[in-house]
């Protein structure tokens, strides 16, 4: 049984302008101790998927369908529809989460020690002193220099990298089975990025936890993930082992993403490859395959009319494309670019 299994999750926002399905039938699974990378551009529904797992989708959004099954000591519990009281024991207890903005993720009016200790005391009946001792231990675990001093400092006295370490320490307070990391390095300097990623990989091994890594950075995925799921416009378009995906991407979107990486250029002088067009807004998702207006391999009429299903093209390699494996030659200019 996988640690976490998401089945056909639909999370939609009910705005005055109508229903906006940010996550539209996503299925994922994460095995214990592994890292799953959830990749996609901004607005594709990655973060909403993560917030759905924790039951923290902000109003007017709500989970409309699907199951989120968490393995708890061999028993599978569905987080969808779980009462708030029980969800609270999961949040920060079984599932820890870290966020994109280390600068603003900590409460400015409490000390670092206070905030880390709170994460402990919310889930375990321990004394203040014991929680503080545990907080110190956690700060050591995330390798913060001079942890005794940092305990009594306020977030504004810490650098961005250190704050992210504090957030990680908080998420690990109860040794969760799963750590959800939502763009954990996006706001950090490149050198700090590498340190934080290395720390996460190391912690995963030492604590035996699984990580759901949400990112738009394929470089990060290549370095850290066992499995990858690529999301586009609220749906998973490709799922595979990381090695297989990088070796042989099947979906035109994934192919485009890989080609758009700066390190993919043969020479520094080459122009950056880009996928033309923009991610569509959930309220005007196109009919048929949602990627077709930007797809260089688009074939009428099937791509524009019929929604492709997620099919297993190779063992363990799933793709949502009518012509994956047999894409043919790319059109010189995709539809969206033609329209412009």
């Amino acid at each position: 049984m996988p640690l976490l299994e998401i089945r056909n999750l639909v999370t939609a926002f009910h705005t005055p302008a109508g229903r906006v399905p940010a996550v539209d039938g996503v299925s994922l699974s994460i095995e214990r101790g592994t890292t799953l990378g959830l990749v996609g551009e901004s607005g594709c529904g990655k973060s909403v998927t993560a917030m759905s797992v924790l039951g923290l989708v902000a109003s007017p959004g709500r989970i409309e369908a699907g199951q989120i099954l968490l393995d708890r000591d061999g028993r599978s519990i569905d987080l969808v529809g779980l009462p708030e009281r029980q969800l609270r024991t999961i949040r920060g207890g079984r599932i820890g989460m870290i966020f994109q903005e280390p600068m603003t993720s900590l409460n400015p009016v409490f000390t670092v020690g206070n905030q880390v200790a709170e994460a402990v005391r919310l889930h375990q009946k321990v004394s203040r002193q014991a929680a503080r001792a545990r907080a110190l231990e956690l700060l050591r675990l995330v390798r913060i220099a001079d942890p005794e001093r940092r305990l009594d400092e306020y977030p504004h006295q810490l650098s961005g990298g250190m704050r992210q370490r504090v957030v990680i320490a908080m998420a690990l307070a109860c040794e969760p089975d799963l750590l959800i990391a939502d763009e954990p390095t996006t706001a950090l300097d490149v050198t700090i990025q590498a340190q934080v990623l290395e720390l996460l990989a190391d912690l995963r091994q030492r604590l035996g936890m699984a990580i759901l890594l949400i990112t738009h950075d394929l470089g990060v995925v290549a370095e850290t993930c066992d499995e990858v799921a690529v999301m586009y416009a609220g749906r998973i378009v490709e799922r595979a082992a990381a090695a297989a995906l990088f070796a042989r991407p099947l979906h035109p979107y994934t192919i485009g993403l890989l080609a758009a990486r700066p390190e993919h250029r043969r020479a520094a002088a080459d122009p950056l490859a880009a996928i033309p067009g923009m991610v569509p807004q959930p309220r005007d998702f196109p009919a048929g395959c949602r990627f077709h207006p930007r797809c260089p391999f688009v074939r009428e009429p099937r791509c524009t009319a019929e929604l492709p299903s997620l099919r297993e093209l190779e063992p363990g390699h799933l793709v949502r494309c009518h012509y994956a494996g047999d894409l043919g030659d790319p059109a010189t200019v995709p539809a969206e670019a033609r329209a412009e």
């Binding site: 924790l54 923290l56 708030e84 609270r88 024991t89 999961i90 949040r91 920060g92 207890g93 820890g96 989460m97 966020f99 903005e101 603003t104 993720s105 900590l106 409460n107 400015p108 709170e118 994460a119 919310l122 889930h123 957030v167 908080m170 998420a171 307070a173």
Partner: peptide, 16 residues
């Protein structure tokens, strides 16, 4: 603010 989201993700209840 983001730190409110962090607090909720830690498992803090509405009143807290």
């Amino acid at each position: 603010q983001d730190y409110i989201r962090t607090a909720r993700a830690k498992g803090a209840g509405t009143i807290r």
